[in-house]
Amino acid sequence: MTARTESQHPTCPDCGWPLHRPPETLSRHRTSEGTVVYTRCVCGRVRAWLEPVGAIRLLGGA
């Protein structure tokens, strides 16, 4: 179950930081599906995001 802020943006289940505002981008890689972005939360959790044309999808880490 993902925690929610008042504005209904998903937050990190470990520390509550908004997932749409990652403090650190570790790397970005173009793929045939779009761009995969690896980010690190303020608590240290690493997430992988897929940024296809027109949408963003969390791949792992939540």
Score class of each variant (00 low, 15 high):
2 T>Q: 09
3 A>V: 14
5 T>Q: 09
6 E>S: 07
7 S>D: 12
7 S>W: 03
8 Q>V: 04
8 Q>A: 09
10 P>C: 04
11 T>C: 10
12 C>K: 09
13 P>D: 04
14 D>F: 13
14 D>P: 07
15 C>P: 10
16 G>K: 07
16 G>I: 01
17 W>Y: 11
17 W>T: 11
18 P>W: 00
18 P>H: 03
19 L>F: 00
19 L>A: 01
20 H>V: 06
20 H>I: 06
21 R>S: 13
22 P>V: 02
23 P>N: 06
23 P>I: 02
24 E>Y: 02
24 E>C: 02
24 E>R: 14
25 T>Y: 10
26 L>H: 05
26 L>I: 14
27 S>L: 01
27 S>W: 02
27 S>T: 09
27 S>V: 05
29 H>L: 08
29 H>F: 03
32 S>W: 00
34 G>C: 09
34 G>M: 04
34 G>E: 01
34 G>N: 08
35 T>N: 05
36 V>H: 15
37 V>E: 10
37 V>C: 07
37 V>L: 08
38 Y>H: 13
42 V>Y: 00
42 V>C: 03
42 V>S: 03
43 C>N: 10
44 G>Q: 02
45 R>F: 01
45 R>I: 11
46 V>G: 06
46 V>I: 13
46 V>Q: 15
47 R>C: 11
48 A>W: 00
50 L>D: 00
52 P>L: 01
52 P>K: 01
55 A>D: 14
57 R>N: 10
58 L>N: 13
58 L>M: 12
60 G>H: 06
60 G>M: 08
61 G>M: 02
61 G>H: 02
61 G>V: 05
62 A>V: 06
62 A>Q: 06
